[in-house]
Design a protein around this nucleic acid. Structure first.
Lengths: 347, 347
DNA sequence: GGGGGGACTGACACCGCTGGCCATTCGGGC
DNA sequence: GCCCGAATGGCCAGCGGTGTCAGTCCCCCC
């Protein structure tokens, strides 16, 4: 249906369409850009020709004239392939069909050229918009650059850091609270928590939510049962080894993410403990791994792809004549995925 | 050092540079494009101004004039986040600094609009080049589209499918042969193989290499010990369950990828078998999971990031005045990562 | 001293599209 | 018949670069 009709091999231009539709290229341009001053009749005729010839305007030329590209950037510093790929997919869900493309920009926030690189990327590409997943989303310096470059952006973070139209809040605390309730309801009382590193907001949010959840059941997190991890497998192993060596070891451990939770599993195995018999474990993220390891890990799942889509939709809202601030905002709601790594404590 | 000097906030243009360097914008253009017809003196002067003002030419305008964008596309249909992210990273390793950006284009090869979508992407964006990882790299229809659009591309595949300058060959067969030798040298004789689906070249290559490796030790793959999987966890479980139910079950299983290998582990556990005591298992891919599951999985690792980099370097060779065909070509060499899921068979 | 040629540079059109401004046409209300 | 607004076209400039081509300059050689 949309086979380009020009035998020349080169794609059609706006002039071709104008000639074939017997209108001026100005009117074709009006149609493309949804100008309201086009008769319905004319619009249909032009659109027919466009469709017939599979024409789509050259994004470079258009971008040049608009002083803005049709590229959405995603700037991230996230080592989890699962997170990254799902978020990319979500962004693409929203961005395709809007005629935008996704340019990925992983970066190293620890590098001393980090800001210069990001600035140069943003300024040079005149991005249509930028998606900032954690932890880059938490870096105000990046946001400053974006503002200075007059580049729209959406930040994805566990807690609100900005005006609503620039935020997708993931409410990690709610997910952690669910984990807490789950463990409390199973009857656990000696419950431990392994946090992520301080440099991540999610780390605090997950800890806070977990405490809130426990509090609902009249439980308090004993500081003796809290360890700081680094969101890595090894740090999970280490922290859990310490906890399990306690005179009164916990009967359940909530790890700040799945990597650490699986480290906890290893530590339990090393200590000759049965999971979940001797120790219940809950993670956070629902990595693919979580449903492969044995026992399958109970964990909190974030709808990452949806989050990406929602963020991108805020960016493209303007294209559809919507206002990102007033959009009906589906809330991100972390869910608890109960699998086999949790059960009641031994009597 | 590279702080833009224009208080206006807008980035410098070629005209600004021309004025400041007291040359025509054409000469600035020559400097940017490394034209040999610029006096050394002039070039230095222009470069000084460019550096001083942190100028970099607008990719859109340049692309418009060149009839080519500065975007590298990566078109893939690969469900493994690990693979995708590593390959993206590798491509970026090569592409950054060349002034190119990476546009990601996951797709669904099963969709009936697949080819139209890919065509529209390629034609519209006038891509600088395209990276095709498996399995898209094996689709000749995509390659036809690229050729028709006069768009450079590099295919990454387990076996050569094209002229050398358009190929990065991953030699999966060599990796599989290593796995075979490893098992043979451990003393295994009843060795099973779970293949991937027929639709993947890698599936055949891994099978072929495995047989070759066995043959070096005078062993032959007994068809009774071969099952076809689908590169999924579940298919691994299923195939292994069948194999382990055999009257004389294998003492070692080579799975076509890690997903299936981990499925094999589950099947072994379900069958009450000890890994590696009763059953040795080897996978392929070295997913992050492989070093998290228990026992840690022995597997074959492909240098995915390097592969991405090598592919992108072929694309950018022209920019550096090199010829992709004659480049010194580092070979991809899959390596065997021996972990804890393999040992000798019980006597 | 004049001619020739290579090295270097700049003027100008153009890439494909949008925006501004004005002219033109058409149809309808009064 | 007049006026007005909606719909459209024409034209030109401009986005920020590059290609073409025609110089200009300088040096070398006869």
């Amino acid at each position: 249906m949309s086979e380009p009709k020009r035998p020349s091999g080169k794609p059609a231009t706006i002039n071709d369409i104008a000639r074939l539709a017997e209108v001026s290229k100005k009117t074709v341009s009006r149609v493309i850009n949804n100008s309201p001053f086009v008769k319905e009749d004319t619009r249909r005729r032009v659109e027919a020709v466009i469709a017939e010839h599979g024409y789509s305007p050259d994004p470079q030329a258009r971008g040049l004239a608009f002083r803005r590209s049709f590229l959405v950037g995603m700037i991230y510093d996230n080592p989890s392939p699962n997170y990254v790929v799902n978020m990319q997919q979500g962004v693409l869900d929203a961005v395709r069909g809007a005629g935008l493309e996704l340019v990925v920009h992983p970066c190293n926030r620890a590098s001393d050229r980090f800001l210069d690189e990001v600035r140069s990327f943003i300024v040079r590409q005149k991005l249509f918009g930028v998606i900032l997943p954690p932890s880059v989303s938490e870096d105000d310096r990046v946001v400053q650059i974006l503002k200075a470059a007059d580049c729209p952006y959406v930040r994805i973070a566990s807690v609100s850091l900005d005006v609503p139209e620039c935020m997708v809040v993931t409410h990690d605390s709610r997910g952690a609270a669910r984990a807490a309730r789950h463990l409390a309801e199973l009857g656990h009382r000696r419950i431990a928590f392994i946090s992520g590193p301080d440099s991540f907001r999610s780390s605090h949010e997950r800890g806070r939510g977990f405490q809130d959840g426990l509090a609902e059941h009249g439980l308090k997190l004993d500081p003796a049962y809290v360890r700081k991890g680094a969101y890595t497998f090894e740090s999970g192993v280490e922290a859990a080894a310490e906890l399990l060596a306690l005179p009164e070891p916990p009967t359940a451990i909530f790890a700040g993410n799945d990597e650490m939770a699986i480290g906890v599993m290893k530590a339990a195995r090393d200590a000759g403990m049965d999971v979940p018999g001797d120790l219940s474990i809950v993670g956070f993220d629902d990595l693919p791994m979580a449903s492969r390891v044995w026992p399958n890990l109970t964990t909190v799942r974030l709808p990452i792809r949806d989050m990406g889509r929602m963020a991108a939709e805020k960016l493209t809202a303007g294209l559809h004549g919507l206002d990102a601030a007033t959009m009906i905002q589906p809330e991100v709601d972390p869910s608890l995925v109960v699998r086999d790594s949790t059960t009641g404590p031994r009597p």
